[in-house]
Structures are given as structure tokens and as C-alpha cells.
Design a protein around this nucleic acid. Structure first.
Lengths: 195, 195, 195, 195
DNA sequence: CATGAATGAGTGTTCATTCAT
DNA sequence: GATGAATGAACACTCATTCAT
């Protein structure tokens, strides 16, 4: 009941997953009915259970995808130590761009992971912790003002990312790079140490 | 159907509303059952319909409360013109404190209005627009850097407020004034004009 | 709980009864709600139970009224024996007119008694039996063709009366006398003995 | 939602429809419960909704059946012109027999269509209109007395048919042909032109 | 690999009726 | 004589899930 092998089966499974993602994102968990998922995927209800254990299970699978890909992303953008002071700006810009791009890339998944999932809170908390750790390391290296509570700053970043993603990117307005630049402009003067 | 007069009736209605707010906030709309709302309120199911048209109706009433109180709050915190340059900081600080306090004051309602409601998006959009208008006026008066896109800035504020509220305040950690101060410290240097 | 005496009480009871008759006639038993009856009567629900035992009870009271008044009517129109052959026509005409008038007089009650009541069938059967008895006596007296099955004829009269009442009279079209005349014209040639 | 294809499905649907017809006819719309319909059909409640949209929908389907079959019947019994005067009697007899037979054929449906349905009034009105049109054509051809108001006559036929159907046929007493003959004997002398 | 048919369990809602005042 | 408030009992309907094929 976990992974069906044949080519046609994988195709069906993928269609179901895509339909589920779209509907969960648009309607939320409860307003999304198995009947409408399978309809969109061109299958019947029992087929659904050929590929997934339950409605909860698909939802969890989607949330899981989102969460683990997000984790990888942030992990891989860990600061290499030995950063030059002049590069801090670019570094933060890069991280923001990467996150904006990630959120824009699969909007259904993003919407599910950041809004629809009951775990949305803990996902954001986890993300915040990762970002905070990055920031703390940089702060210790003297790149950032020592008076800042990096816990708070990380939360501000998350909130900002989240809001801008939904206000602009999911509406198809603006683009990741431009938004990231504006955020950097807004935040950095408050973060860099006084000259 | 929403105007029962006697004192006892108003009491019952209030109990139902409070129970509904608590459960909606904690469990969401769908996992909240009328049966458990009335149980918490010490009544039976039919009584619920003495005071509310439907499950949707109570939910909407709560969201409506939140939305309109939020509206009033922001409207009443419009900037009086004739602000001294030195006061800008304090002004923004004040607005942030007010909003933090408002969000903390009735956590159930806040959770419903900002997360559980399908209209959460439009509520935040509305709030963003109001804040943006405030900011724009101040920008025109020269209090803020002219290169800033106040639309984006407003969204950053909303995201930040929202995130901090849920990360700290609803956990009972931190306090509105302290958080507001940190946000001001973080944002202001990026917002005030260069000397 | 049966008969409240005071003037005001009688007034209230009458208003309830009238409202009930109107609504039962128009909407039927099930679509008529106690709440709407009392609303129309300008009272509250508990007041209803001051005057009637139950919803069924009011309905029965109305049906009972109809049934007993109809009974009296037919009973009182029994043929005096010693009728002259030439008067038969006028006699039947008179009975029809009387019944048409009765049905038109209180349309709500008529609609309830002939259509809405579960006993409608037995009411019509009873009426048919009474009419049949009248007809039989006249047949025995030689006023009517001896080949006619007066049981059937009576049913034809009932059906005709009922249909014409609802097609014309309750629409405010036509009048009892004229309709009665037409029925007599249609039926009598088939009923009177061949010359 | 009304087109399930397999043989087993059609069987179930038919059983539900039959059970519904029987219970609606016997108990009326409101006293008939979905639970008892499905019980009689040997199914469970959700299965009902596999075949019908709602309780109202089955009822309407039954009424619709009745109405359209009745329409066809009357339409197909339109008078061929070129009728011989001597055949008028037989013609009317034939129509009456046909209608009596139709009403007797599916007693549940008849009871629903003529009594239980809120549209019963309009169904009878429609039937009356169709019969009146037939009669009018014959009247124009000189087969019937020109003084008769065929609108009224048609209503008399309907009432008579209805009453006799329920008084005799649904009790299993009498038979269509015999009743039709008696009606013809009663009405025709009043309808045929004076010699 | 897929489907037609069926179901268990649950939930919102309605309404006649009553209690206490 | 009347009412505000409350309730018991029921019922239609939904939906995720599962057999049997």
C-alpha cells in the first residue's frame, strides 16, 4: 500500500497527488473531498486507497515534502565561515532570494505548508530557529549588531517572507529578487553594526 | 434571531460565544462541534440555534468582531499631522504597541481572525492597506526615506506583528512594549531618512 | 386546558384558531409551524399550549368543525317525503347550491377538511353515504331511474362538487348558484326516468 | 447522480423507487422516512443518496413519472376527426376506461400524483384542460349539446374519475369497464344533443 | 490497475413542547 | 394571561472508507 511500481501506477499516483495539492491549497483540508480529488485525477474513489492510506495520509505526505525540502534548503545555505564583512549584505540577500524562490516554485505546497497545515506553526518555528542559528553565528562573528535579539529578528524575517510571498508572489506580482532587495534595504541598516 | 433581550438570555449567548471562540481558535472551524460548544456553555444543542443561525454564523460573528475592532483601532491611530521629526519613532512605537496589545488582549479572537478565518488573507490585506496609507502620509511629509515602497513595508510590518504575536505573546512570553521596541529598533534605521 | 373563559382568552384562542386554519389550508399540516401560527396571532409559543393540547389537537379541532357542520347540513337537507315529481330538479339544485355555498363560505376549513386531513377520505365517504341515502329514497319513490347505482352516482356528485369548488369557487370565479345549475343540467337527464 | 449504470445498481434504484412510492402513497411525504424506505429496499441510508439527490427529489421523480405518463395517455387518446355520431358514446367510454385503467394500474403513483403531491391541483387542472379541449372539438363538430360549458364538464369528469377511482378501484372493488359504463350512462344523456 | 456498489459513523439543524417566572 | 428560555427527540444528509469483482 506504500509504493506501487508500474509506470501507469506511478502516473496515477502523481496525478492524485497533484490534484490533492491543488485542492488542499485552494480549499483547505476539510473542504477538499476525496471525491473531488479523484474526479480531477480521472480516477475513482477506491483507486485513491490503492496509493494512499487515508485522506490524512496524502495531506501529511504533502506537508512532509514541503517541510523536508525547506529543511534541506536552509541547511544548504548555512554560512560558510570566513565571510568578508562586505559580503554580509549579499549573503542575506541570497538567502532571502532563495527562500522567496522556493516559496514561489510550488505555490500549492507552500500554501499548504505555511497556512493549511496544523503544523504550520511548528514549521515556521523550525524555520525561524534555523535562521536564528545562522544569524547568531554571524552575530558572534561581529557581522551584526550585538544588541539584537536574533530570535526576534528571525521571526521578523519569517513573517516578512510569508506575508510578501502571499501578497505578491502568489498573486503573480513582483519577483523574488526585487522583493528580496527591498527587504534587505529595509532590514540591513538596522542590523549592521554602527560604523 | 440575534436579539434576545432578557439578562439570562444575554448571559447564555455570551457563554456560547466565548466557548465558540475558544474552540474555534484551538481546533479550527471543522473540528469544533456544536455539541462541544454547547456542552462547554452548559446548554443543549437547540439552545444554540436560539442565539445563532448556524455554525457558520457564529464563526462569522467572531470574525466580524475581530475585523471591525481592528478597523476602529487602526482608524483611531491615524497620524495627526503636524508631527515633529523627533516624534516619528515614538509614533511608530505607539502604533506597534497598540496592535500588539490588541492582538494579545483577546487571543482566541486574534487566532480566529488571523489564522482560522478563510478571510484571514483579506483581513491582513486590509490592515496592510491601512498601515500603508499611514506610512505614505508620513513619507510625503518627509519623515521616511522616499525610496521605500510603503506597500512592501506595510506587509513587512504585518508579517512581523503576526509572527511575533504568535511566537511570543500567545505563548505568554515577552510583552507588547518590549517587542514593539525591538521591532522599532530593527526597522527604523532602514526607514528614517539619511541624515 | 380545554376552555379558557375570560374575554381576552377567548379572543386569543380565536385568533390562534383562525391563524391555524389559514396556514393549515395553505401549507398543509407539516409545513405549518406552531411558531408561525403564534406569530400570526400575535402571541408566543407557550400561549398556544394554554388553549390547545398540541398541534394535532388544533388540526383535529378544525377538521372536527368541518365534519360536524357538514353532517348537520346534509342531515337538515333530508328530503321531506311527499315530493312532487316536478320538484325533483329544484330539490337537487337546492342541495347542490347549499353544498357549494357551504364549501365556499369557509374556504380554509373546506380545504383542510377535503384535502389536508388524513380523514379526508372518510369524510367524503360519509358525505357520499348520506347523499346516496337521500338519492335511494328518491329512487324508491320513483323519482330516479331504477337502473342507476346510487352509490356510484353519489360519488360522482362528491367528485364533481369537490372539483368545481376548487377549480372555480376557491379561485373566486363563478358562483354557487350558477355552478349548481350547470351540474343539474348535466346530470339530470341521465337521472330522471325516461318519459 | 441519477445515472448509475450497472445492473445491480439499477436494481437497487428500482427497489428504492418502489419502496418510496409505496410509503409516500400510504403515509404521505412527511411521515415517510428515508430510514424506512431504505430498510424496505434492503439498503442503508447512504445508498439512497447514491441514487437520489434528496427526499424531495425521489418524490418529484415519482410525481414527474405520473404526470408525464398521464400526459402521453391523454395526448394519444385525442379524437380522430371524422367520427360518426353513433360512435361518440363508445369514444367517451373508451377514454374513461383508459383513464380508470391507468389510475388502477399503479395505485401508489396515482395516489401520490392525485393526492399527496402539492402539485396535485395543477396536475388535475392540466388534465381537465386536455379533456376540455377534446370535448370542445367534439362539441364544435356537433356531437355535444352546444349549451354545455365544456370547462365545467371536464372538471366534472375529473372529479368523478378521481372519486370513483379511490372509492372503488383502490379498494379492489368494481372494475374499470363497469365503472366507465355507469359514468357514461349517467353523463351522456345530458351531453348528447336533443334529438 | 481499476471500478460499481455499498456502508459506519457522525453532524448540523428543526420543531413541538415545557419550565419557571 | 402571557413570556423568555430551554430541551428531547428525531431526521436528512455527508463523507471517508471498503467489498467484491
Amino acid at each position: 500500500m506504500a509504493r506501487n511500481k508500474g509506470a501507469k501506477g506511478q502516473e496515477s499516483r502523481a496525478r492524485l497527488l497533484a490534484a490533492a495539492a491543488e485542492q488542499f491549497a485552494g480549499l483547505g483540508f476539510y473542504e477538499t473531498k476525496i471525491s473531488s480529488i479523484v474526479a480531477q485525477a480521472g480516477l475513482t474513489q477506491p483507486s485513491f486507497y490503492l496509493y494512499f492510506e487515508s485522506k490524512e495520509a496524502v495531506f501529511e505526505e504533502l506537508v512532509g515534502h514541503f517541510r523536508s525540502r525547506l529543511r534541506e534548503l536552509v541547511a544548504s545555505s548555512r554560512l560558510e565561515s570566513g565571510l568578508q564583512p562586505g559580503e554580509v549584505n549579499a549573503r542575506v540577500l541570497g538567502v532571502l532570494e532563495t527562500l522567496f524562490r522556493f516559496f514561489t516554485e510550488d505555490p500549492h505546497l507552500t500554501r499548504i505548508g505555511l497556512f493549511q497545515a496544523p503544523q504550520a506553526g511548528s514549521i515556521k518555528a523550525e524555520l525561524a530557529a534555523l535562521i536564528r542559528d545562522n544569524l547568531l553565528e554571524e552575530q558572534r562573528s561581529g557581522y551584526f549588531r550585538s544588541t539584537l535579539d536574533m530570535d526576534v529578528v528571525a521571526q521578523c524575517f519569517i513573517g516578512t517572507l510569508e506575508r510578501l510571498t502571499f501578497a505578491y508572489l502568489s498573486e503573480g506580482a513582483g519577483n523574488p529578487e526585487q522583493l528580496a532587495a527591498q527587504v534587505v534595504e529595509l532590514f540591513m541598516r538596522g542590523m549592521l553594526p554602527e560604523k
